[in-house]
Design a binder for these strands. Structure first.
Lengths: 143, 143
DNA sequence: TTGAAAATGAATATTATTATCATAAGCTAA
DNA sequence: TTAGCTTATGATAATAATATTCATTTTCAA
């Protein structure tokens, strides 16, 4: 079992909610944590079924709902009519800057921005567990 | 009829596509242009029906598809299972914070964050022209 | 070990989106 | 203006994804 820290976060979330740990949940979560794409429920179910064929769609659905609730997954829509789940990268770098001409993508992280986000959220009564920041512009070669 | 310039953009889009101008389309578009929220099809239909009760869901649906195609509306998903249409603000840009439990959406603006974004981009040799920032967390009622 | 609480999985229900089709309305040419 | 063709409309139906139900199984704390 990889992804120990993520699994720990999940376990502690379950505990605070009075929910139980099950082999299905663990296996679905672990499988998801190993993806680095935007995976749909059907795709994840297919992956999970390779090793545990009698797992049901509903369990995958409910597990992903849990992971989303505790900030370990981000549910996104890309316009194909399906919800896709994004796994957080381990190093926490999930800000992107994308060149609108050549499509080059760079990643960056800025602690100060994250701090300001948390403050802005607090003013509105929110507690941030996750964020998605995408900048669009021209890279050095295209500007 | 307000929103003349947006209406002009729509009219010229229709013309280039060989589509026709109708009173329903005009009224739906004008009603949408007057919103400053993330409106769903049902909500927009309800608004439109106040003055023109015999308008149909399908016409609203098709009109919003057109507006999206020509860039006058942005179709967004915030996780409540409904597509919501964002009217382009006249006064610029806003960011979103979304409750991952109840799907409440708040908007906020933060000049300082935008400034830091520009700085971070500059370090990577980029010039920012646009950005998308979404925070996910718990609202005051769900935390 | 036991029993209450929660999870599972198959199936069903619900909901939003998209397509269909008969009729109505807009547009162009004469 | 009108004839004739094209597109739009609105009611409804089809589709597809998501959410719920329920009988059974599993977990976990006492």
């Amino acid at each position: 079992m990889q992804n120990l820290s993520k699994m720990d976060i999940l376990k502690s979330y379950l505990e605070t909610k009075g929910l139980k740990s099950t082999s299905q949940r663990d296996y679905i979560a672990d499988t998801f944590f190993k993806t680095n794409t935007h995976i749909s429920l059907d795709e994840l179910l297919k992956k999970v079924k390779r090793k545990t064929p009698n797992i049901g769609y509903a369990t995958v659905y409910r597990t992903m709902k849990l992971l989303t609730e505790c900030g370990l997954a981000i549910a996104r829509q890309f316009g194909d009519g399906q919800t896709r789940y994004e796994n957080l990268p381990d190093d926490g770098h999930h800000d992107h800057i994308i060149c609108i001409k050549c499509s080059k993508i760079c990643e960056f992280q800025n602690q100060k921005i994250e701090q300001l986000q948390a403050e802005a959220a607090k003013k509105l009564g929110f507690t941030v567990v996750n964020h998605k920041l995408e900048l669009y512009g021209y890279c050095s070669e295209c500007s």
